[in-house]
Amino acid sequence: MSISCKGIGFKRYKAGVYLFIMAIAAAFTYGYAHRTLLVNGDAMQTLKNIQESGAWFELEILGWLVVMIEDLLVS
């Protein structure tokens, strides 16, 4: 009985690339876009920020989708 490890190196490489993309997307999404839009304790200001910066809100949603997809690809 022999065990073949062929292709494991490439799988690890792909997982590393996916994790890197996920980290970049999460850093942008939570670190910048989310903090730009959200005002703790002030729902009206948060709503105003979202209404005035619709593109940032859409980018944040897209960023979270990228993070979820990359998370599925890594697992």
Results as ranks from 00 to 15, higher is better:
Met1His: 09
Met1Phe: 05
Ser2His: 08
Ser2Ile: 11
Ser4Leu: 12
Ser4Arg: 03
Ser4Met: 07
Ser4Asp: 13
Ser4Ile: 01
Cys5Tyr: 13
Cys5Asn: 14
Lys6Met: 08
Lys6Thr: 04
Lys6Asp: 02
Gly7Asp: 01
Gly7Lys: 10
Gly7Leu: 04
Ile8Ser: 06
Lys11Gly: 00
Arg12Phe: 00
Arg12Ile: 04
Lys14Phe: 00
Ala15His: 09
Ala15Asp: 09
Gly16His: 05
Val17Arg: 15
Val17Asp: 11
Val17Asn: 11
Tyr18Gln: 15
Tyr18Val: 04
Leu19His: 09
Leu19Glu: 13
Phe20Glu: 09
Phe20Ile: 09
Ile21Phe: 03
Ile21Pro: 00
Ile21Glu: 01
Met22Ala: 07
Ala23Arg: 06
Ala23Thr: 13
Ala23Pro: 00
Ile24Lys: 12
Ile24Tyr: 02
Ile24Leu: 13
Ala25Asn: 15
Ala26Leu: 05
Ala27Thr: 10
Ala27Gly: 14
Phe28Trp: 12
Thr29Leu: 05
Tyr30Pro: 00
Tyr30Lys: 15
Gly31Leu: 12
Tyr32Gly: 04
Ala33Cys: 12
His34Arg: 09
His34Leu: 13
Arg35Val: 03
Arg35His: 09
Arg35Asn: 05
Thr36Ile: 00
Leu37Lys: 13
Leu37Ile: 03
Leu38Trp: 08
Leu38Ala: 13
Leu38Pro: 00
Val39Tyr: 04
Val39Asp: 02
Asn40Ala: 02
Asn40Pro: 04
Gly41Phe: 14
Gly41Asp: 04
Asp42His: 04
Asp42Arg: 09
Ala43Gly: 03
Ala43Lys: 12
Ala43Met: 07
Met44Asp: 10
Gln45Phe: 04
Gln45Ala: 13
Gln45Cys: 06
Thr46Ser: 03
Lys48His: 09
Asn49Gly: 02
Ile50Arg: 13
Gln51Leu: 15
Glu52Gly: 08
Glu52Leu: 11
Ser53His: 14
Gly54Glu: 01
Ala55Ile: 15
Ala55Leu: 12
Ala55Pro: 00
Trp56Asp: 00
Trp56Ile: 15
Glu58His: 03
Leu59Ser: 11
Leu59Arg: 06
Leu59His: 07
Glu60Leu: 05
Ile61Leu: 07
Ile61Asn: 02
Leu62Asp: 03
Gly63Asn: 10
Gly63Tyr: 05
Trp64Cys: 12
Trp64Ala: 14
Leu65Lys: 15
Val66Gly: 15
Val66Asp: 14
Val66His: 10
Val66Thr: 15
Val66Glu: 15
Met68Pro: 01
Glu70His: 10
Glu70Val: 02
Asp71Ile: 03
Leu72Pro: 02
Leu72Ser: 06
Leu73Thr: 02
Val74Glu: 00
Val74Arg: 10
Ser75Leu: 12
